[in-house]
Design a protein around this nucleic acid. Structure first.
Lengths: 335, 335
DNA sequence: CTGTTAGCGCGTTCAT
DNA sequence: ATGAACGCGCTAACAG
């Protein structure tokens, strides 16, 4: 079997303590001792046992990345996967490993949630409840919240300027002289939904453009529903000249329907999506969309969390990430 | 802070052992004791410490999912992410958590790779070296290899019928009466490259269709190179009537170029991709492609690994997953 | 069904 | 710069 610190100690004559130090804090050990120790370690195929280490240090150097079931699967989700990628990158860089946590579902016989101590902290994404955050904290696991906002003590929340992004999108359409703008709202969390929609309404109001009920729709954000909704909007007697979809999947559904109906894009119909997911550059014409720097969000979340774990102060903070309008082929203004 | 098994024991009068059993194997404890124990546990906010448990049991119930750097980022990779998703699902089901392992890069001062014991086993994807597998095994960590094949003792390899998929694609084109078929090979691992290409050649030969050098190209599998290559192929005096791309990203590049050149698909050009990634149904017209059931591959890998970890026999095995041709809008034959 | 006794492999005092 | 002793929280024999 693999050998322990004790085997190395016996083999090379130094004490366990010195072996331990040679790996954990090499600068405390003499050059000579280090050489000898590393040699015999390699020879014995010794490697520190991370579990034992975690046990005594009371920390694992693991983080959890938690996305609730509704948005599962994380990895296939064009919104969360780049965020996860960002998390992965900074964790790797700062010496942490990351867990896709499914512990959240391991119910103990007591009815409690069982998460304790396989990770030092977690990043919780999207929909969740304050109760869950409390439970983690009760088990001494720090939390950073991403794409959601709760008003809790010492909680870092990382969110997006949903409102601003919507404003940029609609402003751009209005600048092109388009006033007949429909919206297809995805049925996201109340916060996201509300903010994106508010951007749409505000810009129209500001320009004294009347909002038409028929132009305001809400659906589950699937390709199927999007197509159906688009078909309906585009069959209206007075059909919209632009459609703002509150995510890219919906927008792509719209593009597909428009193409199938023989409408030319953007001449007869402009389309703007939201998120700038990796799908947006696949469809032809490519999608004009509101970009969120998702990797950056992931990195930010991981950095904040690790800062706290490494002794940084825990202070309540709400960070709003900026958005950019990316002009592509589904609107005018693309060069 | 959070309490330990000892606190619960003292509080409710039972011994540590009984508390331990109440959580680990409830059936060994009397109904009454269980009730009391759970109550006081909840009251004391006690939860078993997974690290301590792992330490004595010598197992963590964690798996690692390892993809080498070249194919990073995993999560954004349209090929590996559904595989990962499959792994996640069966792990969740069978009580394991999964790690995106970056331990592989933590070099110890000794120069050895440090992975020991944060995971019971790993799934290694794609390119790697036998040496790496040996190192894992030396640290008592079981390995299953995915999308790669090594001839090693007791090693389970999960791979794909690359050849058969290519055969199906080309056969389909030939059945439609198309003989001018070009191929754009992605520069993948030698094994994958060779097999997919062999399928193309064999079918043409079998039907006595001559292969033209100008129709055989190889590129790095990026959208950019694909577009450039497609432009060249489609500008040929005798241009191909079909293009077989050895992955979907390449195929989508081809579709985009064809659309931009005003060719009608599939009338003037048929296109077939490979992998059936989530991108293939985004482009319009949607892509005819060779499907690999990637989630199933992930599940298979995880199940094989967990079987071994739970005491199943370790035997050398090479499992080839089947492929299906999915007909969509870029070829005839789609209803 | 329940309790007693021993470690698991390591890091951390506190000495020297 | 190095070593001795203790304990992290839990489970696994073995008894009863």
């Amino acid at each position: 079997m693999s050998s322990t610190i004790f085997d190395v100690a016996r083999e090379c004559g130094y004490s366990k303590t010195t072996i331990s130090r040679a790996f954990a804090s090499p600068e405390m050990v003499s050059e000579k001792a280090r050489r000898i120790i590393y040699d015999t370690a390699r020879q014995l195929n010794y490697t520190p046992n991370a579990i034992a280490r975690a046990m005594v240090r009371k920390q694992t150097n693991n983080l959890g990345f938690i996305v609730n079931d509704q948005q599962y699967p994380v990895v296939l989700n064009p919104f969360y996967s780049p965020i996860f990628e960002g998390v992965l990158q900074t964790c790797r860089q700062r010496g942490y490993s990351v867990f896709i946590a499914n512990e959240e579902e391991i119910q103990l016989p007591t009815g409690q949630v069982y998460v304790k101590k396989q990770m030092d902290g977690v990043i919780i994404c999207g929909k969740t409840e304050p109760r869950v955050i409390d439970e983690f904290r009760a088990q001494n696991i720090d939390v950073v919240l991403l794409n959601n906002v709760f008003d809790m003590d010492e909680l870092v929340c990382i969110t997006i300027d949903h409102y601003g992004g919507a404003v940029k999108a609609i402003e751009h359409l209005v600048e092109q002289g388009i006033e007949e703008i429909a919206i297809i709202n995805g049925h996201f969390s109340p916060y996201v939904y509300k903010e994106r929609f508010r951007g749409y309404i505000d810009v129209l109001m500001r320009h004294d453009i009347e909002t038409k009920d028929a132009f305001i729709t809400t659906i589950e954000p699937t390709m199927e529903e999007a197509k159906q909704c688009a078909r309906q909007l585009l069959s209206l007697d007075e059909r919209p000249r632009a459609i703002f979809a509150t995510n890219d999947t919906i927008a792509i559904g719209v593009v597909k329907v428009a193409l199938q109906m023989g409408l030319s894009i953007p001449e007869e119909l402009s389309i703007i999506g939201y998120d700038d997911s990796n799908l947006s550059a696949i469809i032809e014409p490519e999608l004009t969309t509101v970009r969120i720097d998702k990797e950056e969000m992931g990195k930010l979340a991981a950095n904040k969390l690790i800062d706290i774990l490494q002794g940084g102060e825990r202070k309540k903070e709400i960070i709003e990430c900026p958005t950019t309008l990316i002009l592509r082929g589904t609107t005018y203004g693309h060069h």
